[in-house]
Amino acid sequence: MSVVTDAAAVPVAQVNPVAKLAAAFTIAVGLVLSVDWVSASTALVLEVILLAAMRVPLRSLLNRGAILVFAAALTAVTITLYGEPSGTVHWHFLLITVSDGSITLAVATFLRVLAIALPAVFLFIDTDPTELADGLGQVLRLPARFVLGALAGVRMIGLLGQDWRYLGYARRARGVADHARIRRAAGQAFALLVFAVRRGSMLATAMEARGFGAHPTRTWARPSPFGRREIALIVSGFVIVAVAVTTSVVTGHWNFIGSR
């Protein structure tokens, strides 16, 4: 547990996004291997401790946590009603069968969804897309053309809502937005697509003219440091998975997903 506390010495916003991505991926892969409530609940407790120590804002933790709980609950309800029946059957109607086996599987699924989604969501609070692109290009050595193109595309996504509103205002000013809402929405969506393609083409030409794809002759504007705190966070992800899996195996609840 000392590794977890060492990784949490700084706020989550100051950690390299590549380390956050690696830690979240490690936890997700480890928890996917088994469908049992012991490993998921153990990992969930350790993740909450890690996020609290990394100074994740309490308001964000509660707000986003409530959304994750709701989504996981919907999944659990589906598994309860339509999961594989086993043991005592409590209720049956047409295709719906509620049994001990489906309830146990629903609880395990609920906890596993929370345990996988929690680090994936909260480790990326306040993560700037530019910082993530810097990390992907400098730490993982991904092609600069791909990284910068993806970053430009993400930056352009935020403009789609504004363009949609402006298109609506223009159509209302021309008097073509007062009837046939479905047809108007389809036409407006097509106009938005055309506008986005044109803007993307202009942006690609401008970036090419400025040499954004000329790596390695170009340098990165901002360095992407990767030090002990990032390594500690990744190790913390492995520790969480190791403790969760060991606890599940020792208690006899380990249920490898490939054996089902």
Rank of each mutant, 00 (worst) to 15 (best):
A133Y: 10
G258Q: 07
V241F: 13
L111K: 07
A19G: 12
F146Q: 03
L233Q: 01
Q188Y: 00
W37M: 06
G149Y: 04
T5Y: 08
A152W: 05
L58T: 13
V18P: 07
L111Y: 07
I96F: 07
D178H: 04
H215Y: 14
F110Q: 06
T42R: 08
G135D: 09
T78F: 06
V249I: 15
N255M: 06
I231D: 01
F256K: 14
V15H: 13
G137L: 09
A206I: 12
V77Q: 03
G101W: 00
L123T: 02
I49M: 11
L123R: 04
L61D: 01
A177H: 08
V239Y: 12
S224Q: 01
S201R: 12
I67N: 00
T109V: 10
S34Q: 10
R165L: 03
R141V: 05
V69W: 06
E208M: 09
G158D: 08
L159Y: 10
L233R: 01
V249Q: 12
F70G: 01
S2I: 14
Y169I: 14
D100C: 02
F70Q: 00
H92Y: 03
L151G: 09
I27L: 12
I240K: 15
D128M: 02
A28T: 15
P17T: 08
R229L: 04
G213H: 08
Q138F: 04
L61H: 09
A242W: 05
V38S: 05
G161Q: 05
R55K: 05
A7M: 01
A144P: 00
